[in-house]
Design a protein around this nucleic acid. Structure first.
Lengths: 251, 251
DNA sequence: CGAACACTTGACAGCCCTCAACGTGAGTGG
DNA sequence: CCACTCACGTTGAGGGCTGTCAAGTGTTCG
């Protein structure tokens, strides 16, 4: 039923129809750079030359591994990518879940190596961008450079989002609401969606025990905030959820 | 005695001595860009045109405020800057402490407004860089562009450093060791230094109660890890401190 | 010298983690 | 079709880390 949420927007939209095959994934994180005025067609051609479609990755497949040399960032085209570290006690520290249209690998530029692992949670399609080539093109295209700066700036903010000492309830509420909003921004229902990650993944992301996540979700359900069966979520009371998440999401 | 740590490197080093006054602060975060080969002198002149020295700020002075329009990033030239948010309960959420040579404001590029406050903890001197001008120059100077990418990439990593569910001991150890290393990188003693922030600031940074920070520090002292009188720190057993902080600093 | 502030120390409680057991759904092979 | 397996999720009991509250000490500065 809701498996459509797992395979979003593989469709391509024709941006330029003058005979060549310049296309963008509908959610491409860079499309807006080229849709604006003042960007010539040759730049768009150069951009497509540095894109490398990759996938499908199956659940559990590594997109990149901690310590491997960095050479490319990637845009998620379909599916969900989990980035994480494993501490010496063998426990996962999940950095984030990355949906279609989002960029992974920006934290690897400094250090020239990937500082974390990235695995597919479901069937994942990617667009890889050689970063040296991307930077070169950005020198010629101020809009692209600005866009990269913005993407990285946004990641700084996202990375510290859950840094505060929030309660378990606030964390879970913010996680669900954040997911809801990101899905909505990509054209999916903000009220009904399927979690692509396990309770344990969520717990490792929110720095909690899996049991705590489970308990909070069940309590949310008892309080008629939402309905959740296995990984199918339906949000029933958006405004109360927003109130709980307000401290973390800041609006 | 150790007040020298509060007024580091206001000295200027002459980079170009051909008659003009092109100078760098010794710890300038951008000096290395221009010290490398292949960068012409006109670029250096352009760079100096977009620098605006600012300060001194007195303790408690705001460098910028949450919500204000973003137009410039800044390099700390002297002193310590604290960046933070205030939640609706009125409690501070400290994002970081920024020492000489470090850049603040990179998280404001996306959104065009400063997402947090920045105040001086002691006497602070800054170099402000108009970001639009900086980006323009970066288009001409690949080295500068790459440097900005690296600085922002590093901030992504730093922002998630304390995100894990670490113990109070690990957090305090990592905080002290991180400070020690950053001071050492700027030519100060890694073994003896003065904290420029209060226990409460440290606590709000590490997401703990001030009482917890105080207790941990006293226990560290009893265990002969360090000696601390008010804000004067002396590290006595670096290797044990490193062992405690290893999970967070990842070496 | 007194007030304000920062820091310390102690007692207590609460949130959440740990440990353990059980339930549930999906896939497999007989 | 059903029993089995296995991973995942749920639920309960108990304890520990650390936050909260409170009081005391020390330092700075007017």
């Amino acid at each position: 039923m809701n498996t459509r949420a797992i395979f979003p927007q593989i469709d391509l939209t024709i941006v330029s129809d003058d005979g060549d095959d310049m296309k963008f994934c509908t959610t491409c994180a860079f499309s807006q750079v080229f849709l604006s005025e003042g960007v010539d067609k040759s730049a768009l051609r150069d951009f497509h030359l540095l894109v490398e479609h990759e996938g499908p990755f199956q659940p559990g497949d590594y997109v990149f591994r901690e310590g491997r040399p960095f050479n490319a960032i990637a845009a998620v085209r379909a599916g969900t990518v989990k980035t994480f570290l494993v501490d010496r006690h063998g426990r996962e520290q999940v950095h984030g879940f990355h949906l279609p249209g989002e960029i992974i690998g920006l934290n690897a530029i400094d250090g020239d190596r990937y500082p974390c692992n990235a695995v597919a949670l479901d069937t994942v399609m990617l667009c890889r961008f050689s970063f040296p080539k991307m930077a070169l093109l950005a020198s010629r295209l101020p809009k692209l450079q600005q866009h990269l700066f913005r993407l990285m700036s946004r990641d700084i903010g996202n990375a510290s989002m859950y840094a505060g000492d929030y309660s378990a309830d606030e964390r879970v509420a913010a996680f669900l609401l954040g997911l809801s909003r990101r899905l909505a921004a990509r054209g999916f229902s903000p009220l009904r969606f399927r979690l692509t990650m396990s309770r344990t993944d969520i717990a490792n992301y929110l720095r909690q025990a899996p049991e705590t996540v489970s308990r909070v979700l069940r309590r949310f359900e008892r309080d008629n905030l939402l309905s959740i069966k296995r990984r199918e979520v339906e949000i029933l009371d958006m405004s109360r959820l927003e109130a709980m998440a307000a401290s973390i999401l800041r609006n």
